[in-house]
Amino acid sequence: MSGALQTRSGIGTLSGLALTLAAWAVVTLLLILPVGILFAQALRQGLDAALTALSDDDVLAAIRLSALVVALVVPINTICGLFAAYALTKFDFPGRAALLVLIELPLSVSPVVAGLVWVLLFGRHGWFGPFLAAHGVRMVFTLPGILLATLFVTFPFVTRTVMPVMEAQGRQHEEAATMLGAGFVSLFWRVTLPETGAALVSGVLLCAARSLGEFGAVSVVSGHIPGLTETVPLRIEALYNGYETVAAFALAAVLAVASGLIVGMRGLIEWRRGRPAGESN
């Protein structure tokens, strides 16, 4: 910043103080109080009541299902996302812009639409629904549907975070490695991948956080069968609508802490990379 002109007012000036108070008021009303009420409600009847609510069978089944979804979705989207970033940055080809648009598109889609498309394909009256039903396969209201919806919603994250880094690397290292006789596998594994480092971890964390907390898309394809097709966010909804407030908020607090840890870790990584942590999700 300029040496001559003081651009930061601090709270010494009247306007600085007023603006600061206004900012804290906004943050308190809009951001701090919701988190406050989350834990207040969860612990309303004490820690024991909250823990008892969490050890319910359906809750445990939901936690298991959510963990399974994350464990399956994250690797698939990470591997495919890495390959896509490689293809988009290491080669020039016609239609590159169109491919980029397609990869980014799931970000702009409503979560409900992200679930709807799978019902349109595999539902009872979907394109492939009757065919699959005739062969005894059910995609919607089962695990595959939940997986597809979550894959769709978290589709672009890895590609988006890794691409700028791969772009900045250029192609010299890959070209040099190729000259020295490296094949695709060793090149990718030993040259391209290590250089993406922190960006890759950041993208993976974003993907994990979103697949853990996704509600709208999964809600459309899940069928809401307690103990079978309910992920943690769906279980929270069912508990809340069933007026089991303590249980709903206890589970919500657990989910918020898990998601907060993942996002916080990502913030730390982004901060050490020297980039602003906030990015769309």
């Binding site: 919701p34 989350l38 509600f215 966010p233 769906l234 929270i236 809340y240 908020f249 918020a256 998601s259």
Partner: peptide, 9 residues
């Protein structure tokens, strides 16, 4: 960081 369903309730 807050999943949408958590924010919702």
């Amino acid at each position: 960081a807050l999943p949408t369903a958590v924010a919702g309730i």
